[in-house]
Simulated scan of single mutants.
Amino acid sequence: MTVSNHDLLVRPATTADAGPLIGVLAEAFHEGPLADWLIPDPADRRTVYYRYFKDAVYHGLEHGQVYTTGDQTAVAIWYPRLEPAPVDTRSRLATLEHIAGPYAPKFVLLEEMFDAFHPDEPHHYLAYLAVDPTRQNQGIGAALLADQHRRLDQLGLPAYLEASNMRNRRLYLRLGYHAGPTIVLPTQGPVIWRMWRGAPTSGGRSPFPRTRPHRRSL
């Protein structure tokens, strides 16, 4: 389904959109405390991020829901998580080692921490939201989210995400998310804010669910 939100066209992405959307993700996430922690060298980061987000886009197109704008300047990658998702740990470890090389251990640690604190309650998971840096602060990301939020409210489902900086945390709070317990990455890593937009209820929205950390080993 294609949706027009004022002057912004929001539509499902296809494989034909992959190239531009990989670039949007790599550029949008290139700066910030998480990027600095994952790959301190900016030149190496650009190379690794392109490979990492290429994997993310194609995985989202195959297994999730990917939305973009008419001009391909923004992208959202969602995954329905109606039950706990199994993870092929050996395959993922091999993929991360191929993508990140010497930086793979921190990518492994990041994904392991995210998985360990992921809620079990049925929801849709916003894995990535990115807007071309030259088009940020124009309400594009908020419009892209609003499109999915309408669908989730119709389904009676909540949404979950991790925010990696205060700017994004403030955006999600404005859009109806609530902050839950944080994740603090080890080895002097940054704080990650776990965010929850509850399902509509007669009294408002469902609260942030209790999460029992579950471990997996990569």
Rank of each mutant, 00 (worst) to 15 (best):
L145F: 08
P181F: 05
R151L: 10
G139T: 04
S164I: 09
P209I: 12
A130S: 15
G176D: 02
P209S: 12
Q138F: 01
L152Q: 01
T201Q: 12
R205H: 12
V191Y: 03
G139S: 10
D120V: 13
Y160A: 01
R135M: 07
G198T: 05
P158T: 10
L161G: 04
A116V: 00
T201R: 10
G176L: 06
H123P: 05
A127E: 14
P122Y: 13
L171R: 11
P122C: 12
Y128D: 07
L157A: 12
Q154N: 08
N137P: 00
P200Q: 00
Q148N: 03
P200S: 02
P209T: 15
Q148I: 06
P133E: 00
W193H: 08
Y172E: 05
L129M: 15
R167E: 14
V184P: 02
R174A: 14
L126I: 04
V184D: 14
R151Y: 09
H178V: 15
L144I: 15
T182H: 14
D153P: 00
Y125L: 03
P158W: 06
Q138K: 09
A159P: 00
P122K: 12
S164Y: 11
A142D: 07
R170K: 11
L155E: 10
G180I: 05
P122H: 14
A163G: 14
Y128K: 10
R151Q: 13
R197N: 02
I192S: 06
R174D: 14
N165M: 06
A127P: 01
L161Q: 06
Q154Y: 08
V191R: 13
Y172F: 15
V191E: 13
G180E: 07
A142K: 12
L129R: 07
Q188P: 02
V131Y: 01
L173F: 03
R210N: 08
T134N: 08
G176E: 03
L161P: 07
T187D: 15
D120L: 12
L161D: 05
P186C: 08
I192F: 08
R174E: 11
H118A: 12
S206R: 04
Q188D: 15
R174T: 13
L157W: 09
H118I: 00
H123K: 04
L171Y: 13
V184F: 11
L145V: 04
L129A: 10
W196R: 00
R169H: 13
D120P: 03
L145S: 04
R167M: 13
D132H: 11
P133H: 00
P186W: 12
G189I: 05
H123N: 06
P207K: 11
F208P: 01
L129I: 15
R135N: 02
R170Y: 11
H178M: 10
I140W: 04
L175T: 01
E162R: 08
E162D: 15
H118Y: 09
N168Y: 09
P186F: 06
G156C: 09
N137E: 11
L155H: 06
D120G: 09
G198I: 02
P122G: 14
G203F: 13
D147Y: 03
F117H: 14
Y172L: 12
G176Y: 03
N168Q: 13
P122W: 15
G156S: 05
P190E: 04
L126W: 02
A127H: 14
G198V: 02
